[in-house]
């Protein structure tokens, strides 16, 4: 048995398309303007065609959009939904893509039959299919947003942990901001990988920019230092501020590592340890006398 929806799409696809597009373009809720008309038109046309083909091939009668027959429809909707999620559309704007299809179809449904019972049955079936598709759109949207957020978190974490080379074999990691578990893991990995990449013997972890050090942060620092040691590199912690040092003592956190007041002091120690010394050239050379 062919459903009314299949029948309508079979006989009047272009009519539905025109009306649907008009609705999408005028509806404030469809995010009009952010998407090019030609692109929207192409999306709508492809979707309608795929839906018509799927419905024509759907023999079961109880239309299940998760079935293989609807694969192409789902793929198209996923693309639409995903691209909108990335472009910053709201969930309702994205779902409107499917739900606004209801109006043109219901209009044509009225002409489909005069019998109230048939009409009620067919309305129910149309609603079911479109609601399923709408929910599917929202689900994909949700998933895509989660992916976007996860990616941004990764990027932020990466940006906030620059490892700089101070000298041959001496690295510095200036930490700025609060350290949580997730970020500490990135910090650890970045630092340890840099140690390998640059064959660094000494890494200086500068915490001048870290506002508070609690037990957890201290533990993370200690783990990083222990891991570096296992790889064959030493760590020096620098820039522990007086209040932080006091808090740590009160908390009973023991940071049993080599620590120096400033990054400069730490660098001096690192140079000494690697058998180097910084000496002052006897008389500072004034740049104007050199030529």
């Amino acid at each position: 048995m062919v459903s009314a929806l299949a029948n309508i799409l079979e006989t009047n696809e272009s009519g539905v398309l025109a009306k649907w597009l008009e609705l999408l373009l005028t509806s404030a809720n469809a995010g009009g303007g952010r998407i090019k008309e030609a692109e929207l038109k192409a999306q709508c046309r492809e979707f309608l065609t795929a839906l018509r083909q799927a419905l024509a091939a759907d023999m079961g009668g109880d239309t299940d959009i998760q079935s293989d027959t609807f694969e192409r429809v789902r793929d198209l909707l996923s693309d639409v939904s995903r691209s909108r999620a990335i472009q910053g559309f709201s969930p309702s704007e994205t779902a409107t893509f499917v739900f606004s299809l209801k109006q043109p179809i219901f209009e044509l449904l009225r002409q489909f039959s005069q019998d109230a019972l048939t009409l009620a049955d067919e309305s129910w079936r149309v609603t079911q299919v479109l609601d399923q598709l709408g929910l599917f759109t929202t689900e994909v949207y949700q998933k895509s947003r989660e992916e976007v957020v996860a990616r941004q978190q990764d990027e932020i974490a990466e940006l906030s942990t620059p490892v700089v080379k101070l000298w041959d074999g001496i690295l510095a990691l200036p930490l700025i901001g609060t350290l949580d578990s997730a970020r500490t893991q990135t910090v650890m990995e970045t630092l340890l990988q840099s140690i390998v990449d640059q064959s660094a013997e000494i890494a200086i972890i500068d915490i001048t920019g870290v506002p508070t050090v609690d037990t957890l942060v201290a533990q993370h620092l200690l783990k990083t230092i222990a891991a570096a040691r296992l790889m064959g590199a030493d760590c020096i912690v620098s820039g522990i501020r007086p209040q932080i040092a006091q808090t740590m003592v009160h908390l009973g956190v023991e940071l049993n590592v080599v620590s120096k007041a400033s990054l400069a002091d730490a660098l001096a120690l690192a140079l000494t340890r690697t058998g180097r010394a910084v000496v002052r050239v006897k008389t500072p050379i004034a740049s104007t006398t050199s030529h």
Partner: peptide
């Protein structure tokens, strides 16, 4: 002397509770 431990291995060992 244990030489050339990879970063991921070092992190895991520390988490495991081994410091060698």
């Amino acid at each position: 002397v244990v030489v050339g431990m990879r970063p991921a291995v070092a992190i895991t060992l520390v988490e495991l509770g081994l410091s060698l």
